[in-house]
Nucleic acid binder design. Structure first.
Lengths: 232, 232
DNA sequence: ATCGCTGGATTGTTGAACAATCCGGTAATT
DNA sequence: AATTACCGGATTGTTCAACAATCCAGCGAT
């Protein structure tokens, strides 16, 4: 945790060792941000759409100022863009942005997998692979997509770095803005199902070099696919 | 300067081709954030210090709500931490955070340098090296520190990725929180002055593999130094 | 020393207000 | 007809004042 000179909180009776009673009720602004994030990921709000403060404030039954705070948060996450004095809009990814996003992913994913990770973290990667297989067997496209995101999230989690994790989470959130419907034809997934398996087993066998190379190759190909689909 | 892709705005007669008249007056909240960032980097606000909304609002002559917006921004940059219902404090880096920060730096800096860059970007790296030499000759410790930051910023800039640049800018801003006073003994710098030179010439000669290795070694050593100084 | 209470201070959130800015359309100009 | 100037409505940027919720320190009672 960031700083926190938390004084050793006395654990009375019931509370297990080190287990902190995290009952934190998220603030209203945070919940508004969360709701918007949800609607963005779900495709309710399409890229380019305009969000007017007053409308959303009324819709969610909160103050305009609070909406403003939420907007600020989502803007720094690049999910929304602010046009000063003109309003906030749902972010749209141009061709350049796709390359940009993949540049970030190459940097942090490859670096994370090359450094290996604890058995538990590796097990988490394996779990994501299996999750993907199950989704494929069930013909669950939705589930396939999120399984893939879990897979790549688990790879970054190998590094045990809170900062890398939040960066990755933001990047994935950005990508969810596009992946929505459209662009969702199945023979995409058929590829990386096998590929994730390969990467994972390379990781499990300790061949980090190979795992990194495979992952890098995948990311390069994925970027190319995305650009041919989206940008021109 | 967070990132700043300031284009050299030449105001020819009326309006050059495609040159957008970027006169953008930053919003009040942005200026408050900027002012706080400045005070943080300058060491005016020490890690752990508490910032009360009302006080700062009055000091800067702005509304409490505006201060709030600025706080939110700086909190997502990890320069401030919010303790719900208790206030915001200047972030403090624990031992774990140092490792975390260096994990991010290893990921993005090494990845960036390994991919090479355009001659102009490489020239920028060289410029940072020379800036460091000049500062050393002038015995300017302050200048030495910022030259080093410019050097590493220039390395990330090789990748031409806006997202990586902002991430790096934030990480560097975080580190500035510590580097202040203390930890500033000169024989630190004597090392990396030579080392930056080596890295840079390896980069210039196209030996990206070697450049990456040198950079990685530097980062590892730097992390170790920081932990021995700071953490216990 | 521990517990519980209470008052004061700060944060979280709201609602209303107003200035600044932008947008579209209409009128005036060339 | 095309361009310019202007005007009104709408939205954002910012402030202000209020209030509920929460936390903190102190104090007294057990």
């Amino acid at each position: 945790m960031a700083s926190a000179d938390q004084k050793p909180q006395q654990k009375a009776g019931i509370d297990g060792a080190g287990a902190r009673m995290r009952l934190r009720v998220p603030s209203v602004a945070e919940r508004v941000a969360e709701e918007l994030r949800y609607q963005l990921a779900e495709g309710f709000l399409v890229p380019g759409a305009k969000l007017t403060e007053a409308t959303i404030a009324e819709d969610l039954g909160v103050s305009r100022n609070t909406v403003r705070e939420a907007f600020a948060e989502l803007a720094t996450e690049r999910l929304l863009v602010r046009h000063p004095n003109r309003g906030v809009y749902v972010a749209t990814l141009e061709a350049g942005d796709i390359h940009d996003v993949y540049t970030v992913r190459r940097a942090i994913e490859v670096s994370s997998i090359r450094a290996g990770g604890s058995p538990e973290r590796i097990a988490a990667v394996r779990a994501a692979v299996e999750e993907g297989k199950r989704a494929a067997a069930a013909n669950d496209n939705e589930g396939l997509g999120s399984a893939n995101q879990h897979f790549h999230g688990a790879i970054v989690a190998l590094a045990e770095s809170g900062r890398l994790n939040t960066i990755m989470a933001q990047v994935l959130a950005e990508m969810r803005l596009y992946f929505h419907k459209a662009t969702m034809n199945a023979h995409f997934y058929s590829d990386w199902l096998k590929e994730n398996e390969q990467i994972c087993s390379a990781l499990e066998s300790g061949d980090l070099e190979r795992a990194g190379d495979l992952l890098l190759a995948y990311l390069n190909r994925s970027e190319q696919q995305q650009t041919t689909i989206h940008g021109q």
